[in-house]
Design a protein around this nucleic acid. Structure first.
Lengths: 176, 176
DNA sequence: CCAACTGTACCGTCTGGACGGTACAGTAAC
DNA sequence: GTTACTGTACCGTCCAGACGGTACAGTTGG
């Protein structure tokens, strides 16, 4: 009945993997580095994940869970889905955001599973935005703005006023 | 006096380097792969660039030249800078776009030179947008949309209607 | 109740291959 | 004879993955 206790090390390894991907890119996300960052030996890592591929698989699996929860929160957000979506696009400190950026790094290495995972998450977001706004063009545009906020964050160039600017413009469109 | 003639192979190497970075990520952009893609031996590559670092340096140098030319074209575009900016954010087949995506890949590996290059290009674009629109909030928002288009392209998820959607929304703001 | 055994969660070491880089001899064109 | 390469032979390091071993908590049979 210790099946709930192995979550700790397993998740710590996944966290470390994501951290390496986000902070140093896929090149620095080696098994050694991941194991060290998780405070586990390389052998210990390979006990939980038999290959680097399984590490990716595990990360993507967890991403899906987080994504489902995020979409649900977006749907029921008090300030509305648009505000929630934009807000969470900037706040790149959250575990979910880190998982997403990590997934894009893997997708860039031509991993079809990661690309599919990203597509699935994006489609879910778009569905909520489009339903709420009743306007595909506007929904897609807002999604692009969110992508832009993501992109800026993940390349290290953060403009603290960006979100305020976006709010101002969307206000003119009676969206916020 | 052959300094204009080595452009051929030198540029072909830089092209190949960028191609590897864009299509396979930084992990697959090895010296062997770059040399092979350029139809040059590894020794030939190292004749032109004494290290991988010099390859990055050369790429960034060329990026700056391309960026200056792009900003000039943007400034004098017949349809206006906004339209030009958005248009070129989607068309990821152009050499300049490829160079930019390649630079982001390098920047993700914590290369400060690449990050600085990206920042410089982005600042130049923003200056033109802000000057043309006379509205910082709108300029920043449009820049974010462009970033979003870039991001989508570079992660392989392309929505063919994205640009049309954006145009429609910007039309409501009397921008296009 | 205790010995034998099983499964889980690791650690430390090793190997084979890839990668960055060096060195250098040879070649072909201008 | 300089420029622009090719090709081969290396070296040291890094990396993914395999492997053998350890500690220990449970379980099962007698």
């Amino acid at each position: 009945m210790a099946s709930r206790d192995d979550r700790s090390t397993r998740d710590r390894l996944l966290d470390a993997f994501e951290q390496q991907l986000v902070e140093g890119g896929s090149r620095s996300a080696t098994l050694d580095a991941v194991a060290a960052a998780a405070g586990v030996s390389k052998g210990g890592l390979l006990y939980h994940f038999h290959s680097k591929d399984e590490l990716v698989e595990g990360m993507l699996e967890r991403l899906h869970e987080q994504a489902d929860a995020d979409v649900e929160k977006m749907r029921t957000a008090p300030a509305g889905p648009v505000d929630f979506y934009l807000e969470t696009s900037v706040d790149s400190g959250s575990p979910f955001d880190r998982a997403l950026i990590a997934a894009t790094r893997v997708a860039q290495e031509n991993d079809p599973r990661a690309a599919a995972a990203m597509a699935r998450v994006r489609d879910a977001w778009f569905a909520v935005l489009a339903e709420h706004l009743g306007d595909e063009a506007l929904a897609r545009t807002i999604q692009l703005i969110g992508d832009g906020l993501y992109f800026d964050d993940s390349t290290g160039l953060r403009d603290p006023d960006a979100l305020a600017h976006v709010r101002k413009v969307l206000g003119r469109l009676d969206v916020l």
